[in-house]
Design a protein around this nucleic acid. Structure first.
Lengths: 156, 156
DNA sequence: GCTTGACCTCAACTTAAGTTGAGCTTGTAG
DNA sequence: CTACAAGCTCAACTTAAGTTGAGGTCAAGC
């Protein structure tokens, strides 16, 4: 029984519930790391399970892989989060989530107001008129966020 | 003063705040319609503004173009929504929004619980263990929704 | 009558987060 | 020692919602 602390991709996939291809992908993105055997196969330390768990939680919260990567990388020495690190991360993420919920509520209330209102006259719709601002501020509910390299849609 | 009721793409873009290319795109998707001049240029009726307004609101709520298209198409004769139609649509969408908010709240509460907890031991994390279910139910917060044609990630 | 500017089509590119497949290597069990 | 499972790399594909660009037409002002 040599130290079985090393895990293969397949084992990590099984235990973490993410696909092997996803693990490769995360590694390419720098979210997890591995070393290789003489035969070029990946071996992971057990800490990878923690990292993957965090990645999954963060994703559910709506954090992009890029952001997750930054958060993990910003930790001292890029170490796998300790309990304290995790407190920091999860607190920040929870706050983001709170914010998103608040935005959605605003939107819902707008929509509620809108239901009986004169929306159909286009110009005096509360949602149309405050919704714009809301959307431009970048809430997370849009399916795909395009940074839009050059915005050329200037009004007038 | 002949009926100036006809709008060019550019005019619609200006008045609705969406790019010309997006209007083309919506048209290709069947969300809006136009007829053409002898010179093959698009002309829109004023109702297009209403449709576009609705599309934008629905998008903010997190509805995909496909769903919006279906909703619009499901109206009798595929007409541009009347006030009553709009009531129906917006009510349904608001309910969806409510649901999404509820999901996010659950997630946030899980995260809150998680902050002080023994998460880092991976196995006994409440979020890890109920979060899975939550996520699989398909909440809207994930950035990109992949229908995943064949799911092959069967556990054990 | 010609030159802008708005319009047209169509194809290719973008981002995110992976998946799928081909073609090849490793490792292990019988 | 030889299969066969698992691993490897790399490229191409997927979805959503458009954008960007090339190459060509239309309309209006001067």
């Amino acid at each position: 029984m040599a130290p079985v602390t090393e895990l293969t991709v397949g084992q990590v996939a099984m235990r973490s519930g993410v696909a092997v291809s996803a693990l490769h992908f995360y590694e390419a993105r720098g979210l997890i790391r591995s070393h290789r055997t003489s035969g070029n196969q990946r071996r992971y330390g057990r800490d990878v399970l923690r990292r993957v768990a965090i990645i999954k939680v963060a994703q559910e919260v709506g954090i992009s892989l890029a952001e997750i990567g930054e958060a993990l990388a910003s930790l001292p020495e890029g170490r796998t989060p300790t309990r304290d690190d995790w407190n920091l991360l999860s607190t920040a993420w929870r706050d983001g989530l709170d914010h998103k919920i608040a935005q959605l509520k605003k939107l819902r209330d707008g929509l509620t107001d809108c239901i009986g209102c004169g929306c159909m006259s286009i110009d005096k719709c509360p949602l149309r008129n405050k919704g714009d601002r809301l959307a431009r501020e970048g809430m997370g509910a849009r399916r795909l966020i395009l940074p839009s390299p050059r915005s050329r849609g200037e009004g007038a």
